[in-house]
Amino acid sequence: MKLIFIALLHLLSSSFSGEPLPNDAPLRYVCYYTTTAPQIDGILNDECWKKAPWTASFQDIRGKDFPKPTYNTRVKMLWDDHYFYVAACLEEPYIQGTITQRDAVIFHDNDFEVFIDPDGDTYLYYEFEMNALNTIWDLLLVRTYREGGPALNGYDAKGLRSAVYIDGTLNDPSDIDKAWYVEIAFPLDVLKELNGNRKPAAGDQWRVNFSRVEWHTTIVNGKYIKEKDPISGKTLPEENWVWSPQGVVDMHRPEMWGYVHFSK
């Protein structure tokens, strides 16, 4: 019995460290409670962020057996009585963005995405996307697309706050950039509606995942242009990099999202 208990402790410890479980099982992250809210400005120098660990680096959406992403991406999470906080660092030598209209299809730009299913039942979950211009798109999915949807595109999370900080220059191909940072405060008063009207408490866990869409671009006349296949003439497909791998190119498989464990 003692050996079984020790083995279970070891498994839990490794799964919360951000390292993959066997067979690319969903990753895990301990989300710590903060008594001091971060300033939502995209600059991750708040004391609370310094205490929050980074996730493991993103990998190909299909899993670790596929090519490693060209640029590194990592995420941090925190929570308090009012918000679920997410911060991310997206390394990128060519920071770019064109979409300025809220609730447009943001992944037509390079973007950062968050998926949240608080009760983990794979139904009625929340999707959020943003680009380097801090243009956002948020929506609800009643069911996954493979089950017929639908997506409630007119949904806006009241009280949501987000910010971007760019370590470089936006839409300037003449130099090499370092990274763009995002910071998001998701209001718990909104997310609790997806969880039986319950805010998270210590010991709870949510199903969460993060995605980064990266297009292949080239520079033409001082502008970023999406690359095309030389034979078909079609735009090359985007890269999809995620925290917890999905096994297929489809973010809408909530059963594969990571486990976020709320802790005080």
Rank of each mutant, 00 (worst) to 15 (best):
S57V: 03
S244C: 01
T35I: 07
R198C: 07
L152Y: 15
M1H: 11
G42E: 11
F112T: 06
W241Q: 05
P38R: 06
T34S: 09
T55L: 07
I95H: 04
L3S: 15
R253G: 01
R207E: 09
T169G: 05
T98V: 07
V260H: 11
N195L: 05
K199S: 08
L11Q: 09
I136T: 10
V75T: 02
S17I: 10
D175S: 10
Q205D: 13
V260S: 03
K264Q: 11
I219A: 07
Y29C: 05
K158R: 13
R102T: 08
P67V: 13
W215I: 02
W243H: 04
K264N: 12
Y125C: 01
N134E: 06
W215G: 01
L27S: 06
W206G: 08
N209H: 02
L170Y: 08
E92P: 03
R62G: 02
E239H: 11
I43Y: 15
A25H: 05
L152S: 09
N209C: 00
L141E: 10
G63S: 06
W243D: 01
Y224E: 10
P173I: 09
P20F: 12
R207T: 11
F66R: 15
A56W: 04
Y71I: 02
F16P: 01
N131L: 00
E91A: 00
V220H: 14
G203Y: 12
V208N: 00
D24N: 06
L133A: 01
M251N: 02
D24R: 02
W206F: 15
S14G: 06
P67W: 14
S15C: 13
E47H: 10
H82N: 09
A157R: 13
I6S: 14
N45M: 02
A37R: 13
Q59T: 13
E113Q: 07
G18R: 03
E47C: 04
K234T: 08
A56R: 06
W54I: 03
G97R: 03
N197W: 12
P67H: 15
A52I: 06
A163Y: 03
K226V: 08
